[in-house]
Write a protein that binds this DNA or RNA. Structure first.
Lengths: 155, 155
DNA sequence: ACTATTAATGCATACTAATGCGATGCCCCG
DNA sequence: CGGGGCATCGCATTAGTATGCATTAATAGT
């Protein structure tokens, strides 16, 4: 039944927040004492649904209720988001400054980081501005050319 | 060899920060391409040492470099946290770009600020990247040398 | 009420990760 | 040199997690 599944998952989060649980079998035992009788299979699926992380350490591995795992747009490919968010591009020396719509800098910067171009030493992003440090002026020009091309592509 | 172990673990953190890695075997293959040839056993131990979390989700499980746990950051000395958080260092002109594990930039930058070196005009930190503006290229080289030394210190 | 459809599970098993143990390579001290 | 103390790592094996498939429920439509 649907309701009990939710309640069970809630109970799981409580247990995980309260104690140090090392395995699904251990979790199963604890749930048993609380009246829930399910198999390890179910727990595996519950933990996946809840995105509960398994963190190993020299003191043993433990389950921890994660960040919420909301993977918003932070995994979108550059080519997909740049046309929507891009505003302008300019630079000096080895630095490139890209402006985006408000709130657009973080997703664009994270897409940029993921591409791991050797032309870019790193990026720092605020809310609507990204500073890219390039390896050289030449590198900056290459990056600028590529970004303007990507930005102009209509989706 | 101690050195290669630490380097390998850094390579692991970089890979994990860049791609979606689902298993130790997959990680092993990626490391192989980078010239590291180790077994799954070793990766299991490395991931434990690094406290890398394994997070399941409906889209598949993946490894994510967690918070690194212990340090609450804001008052830790540079030498203490850098080895844990450091990923890479690079620069052009008077600028130095330091990459850290996700979430590591703020604590490192604040530790840097507290040292108040006259070689560094200032720092700007995002989530995993720090930009340092140095007084000169020579200053940048000094700072870079010092930071790599600190970063390599075994915990 | 009957059948189709979808969810939730258990079972058995495939897959993945952790670990006991021994081998190896260092480093240091006598 | 030679042996002790350490740390690292691979191999083999065990421990633990994920999943395909079948079953049972609950729900909806006619």
């Amino acid at each position: 039944m649907t309701v009990s599944k939710r309640e069970r998952q809630h109970a799981i989060l409580e247990l995980i927040g309260t104690r140090e649980i090392a395995s699904q079998e251990e979790l199963r035992q604890l749930l048993l004492k609380k009246g829930w009788d399910v198999t390890q299979s179910t727990l595996s699926r519950d933990l996946r649904d809840l995105r509960v992380a398994r963190v190993p350490s020299p003191q043993g591995t433990r389950y921890v209720a994660g960040d919420s795992g909301a993977d918003d747009g932070s995994r979108a490919p550059l080519a997909g988001i740049l046309p929507q968010l891009f505003l302008s591009l300019d630079g000096v020396g080895p630095m490139l400054v890209l402006k985006t719509v408000i709130g657009g800098a973080q997703p664009v910067a994270s897409a940029l980081d993921r591409e791991a171009s050797s032309d870019i030493l790193g990026t720092i992003a605020g809310d609507d501005t990204i500073l890219m440090i390039c390896r050289s002026e030449q590198a900056r020009e290459r990056v600028a050319r590529r970004l303007s091309t990507l930005a102009k592509r209509p989706r």
